[in-house]
């Protein structure tokens, strides 16, 4: 399970980085499809950590350690960032036709929202990973022992 999580996390990171520059990798069409698909994978990432989410949600106002609270707040922000990125991406999409969704708002607003939310979320990702560094170290140590 941990190995699957690790591979998923690495994949998420790579795709996220490719998405940060729409010009970097096979143009906007890739960007838009990958942006939509990555959303599903983030849901999977959440599902795999579901037990943690359940426990902390229940205990949040009672007796969670501060660190768990910090992680929780960060996770909620990450999720919000993700939703904003994809929603604004849909609003400014050019190669996939989403006009039927009638999201409203000005194109300018969504465009700025798309840029800012993706930049802020990338920074939050960095912090998120930093807070889970122990887990990452453990995974790589595990790999060494196994080999």
């Amino acid at each position: 399970m941990n190995r699957i999580k690790l591979i998923l996390n690495i994949l998420l990171l790579i795709v996220m980085l490719l998405l940060m520059d729409p010009r970097s990798f096979y143009g906007l069409e890739f960007h838009e499809w990958a942006g939509l698909i990555i959303g599903l994978f983030f849901i999977l990432h959440k599902a795999l950590n579901w037990s943690w989410i359940k426990i902390v949600t229940v205990c949040f106002f009672k007796s969670s350690p501060n660190r768990a609270r910090l992680n929780y707040v960060l996770d909620v922000l990450l999720l919000a960032g993700m939703v904003l990125m994809i929603l604004s991406g849909i609003a400014i999409a050019r190669t996939i036709n989403f006009s039927w969704m009638n999201l409203g708002g000005s194109g300018m607003f969504w465009r700025v929202m798309h840029t800012s939310s993706s930049f802020i979320t990338l920074a939050l990702f960095g912090i998120h990973l930093g807070l889970h560094w122990k887990w990452v170290q453990l995974r790589f140590k595990f790999k060494k022992v196994a080999s």
Binding site: L13, L17, L18, M20, D21, P22, R23, S24, F25, Y26, G27, L28, E29, E32, R94, T95, I96, N97, L122, A123, F125, G126, L129
Partner: peptide, 24 residues
């Protein structure tokens, strides 16, 4: 409906991606 690359002729260019990675 007629999606095309931003920049024809150069479809993979990872310089900025590298910088994003370093910032991350």
């Amino acid at each position: 409906g007629e999606g095309r690359d931003f920049r024809r002729g150069q479809s993979v260019r990872l310089v900025n991606v590298g910088w994003f990675f370093i910032v991350f």
